[in-house]
Design a binder for these strands. Structure first.
Lengths: 186, 186
DNA sequence: GTCTATAATACGATAGAC
DNA sequence: GTCTATCGTATTATAGAC
């Protein structure tokens, strides 16, 4: 696995996280990664869409690892999820509200127009949800409630990131952390 | 206020709701609205960005009206918000999972790249949140909790729409409706 | 006022030198 | 393998006929 190839993927992740799929041009990816245009089509002969899919998968694995670590850090799911949201708030703030919604922009742009990108996003969300759901099952919730709550947690993560980035303020993420903690102790 | 001008705005709303800002071309807007290119720049001499801002404001007012009607439809905030999310689920489903996140895509694309669009999205979210917050205050929650919960409700609406559209399944919206109802009765 | 034709530019993708 | 130059086609925006 080449080093420059990884750098192209990393740059694609970063730019599409900030701007989305269509707003991110291949030229910009090449400029910021330092790679020339020939290299891009050598490594990704199938073009922009294939590159975006690899970027989504890379980001998905990264978030999944963070989620797993976060869930393992506390016994009670409420503590784990609250802590995860607070850590996310810190991350969004230190990025200057540029990072945080790794695949959300692509998910929305492509939800009804691009089948391949949609599938990649769908897989990512389901992986994340399964991690949270497993933690809730361990925590003693009923199976049906664990599934519902896991879905809600992923929705809250995505939605609160959008609000925080739009408002340039981490309050939505911190508020969500607090209230989801309350809900999980009901 | 011209009729054709309104039609251009309505088409812009619809297309950007599905595809986002950058993926929606002016040519496509003109094709689908039936207006010629000359008309667009007659009505919107400041170009695409100004058109998008008017589209955001139009959508924002529409959602605000729906939210107000939804909040007034039940005495208890929990019932009102649960009902609103279920109605939203129905709307997303009947649109074939194409509609629902009216300004979310633009909010993400422009969060860190376009100040004017970002401001328009920020205003929309704050208007919606104020409507929910007022209902929660009436419902007897403390001021600080009403603010936190209103923020969470808007985040859940946005996040659950994203998941439902990506998965082509209204379960995330319906799950959110159920669990937010539980939380609001804590 | 309404429209067509077109300019200027950026895009994704490719061809071919080395 | 790595790169440069370039193609064809989108894009936004404008100029000018009627």
């Amino acid at each position: 696995m080449s080093n420059k190839r990884d750098e192209i993927i990393a740059t694609t992740c970063r730019l599409m996280e900030m701007q989305g799929y269509h707003a991110t041009g291949l030229n910009q990816i090449l400029e910021e990664s330092g790679a020339p245009k020939g290299s891009l089509y050598y490594y990704f002969p199938e073009g922009k869409e294939a590159l975006a899919i690899e970027a989504i998968e890379h980001t998905s694995r990264l978030i999944a690892a963070n989620l797993r670590a976060g869930m393992a850090a506390h016994d009670h799911p409420a503590d784990a999820i609250t802590d995860f949201l607070q850590t996310l708030a810190h991350y969004v703030q230190t990025s200057g509200f540029q990072a945080g919604g790794p695949i959300t922009a692509i998910a929305l742009e492509a939800a009804s127009t691009n089948e391949a990108l949609n599938a990649a996003c769908r897989d990512a969300y389901q992986d994340w949800q399964a991690i949270v759901e497993a933690k809730l099952n361990e925590g003693g919730y009923t199976a049906v409630r664990a599934r519902r709550l896991a879905s809600l947690v992923i929705a809250v993560i995505e939605g609160a990131i959008i609000l925080s980035r739009t408002q340039r303020n981490v309050a939505p993420l911190l508020d969500a952390a607090t209230e989801i903690g309350v809900l999980l102790r009901c």
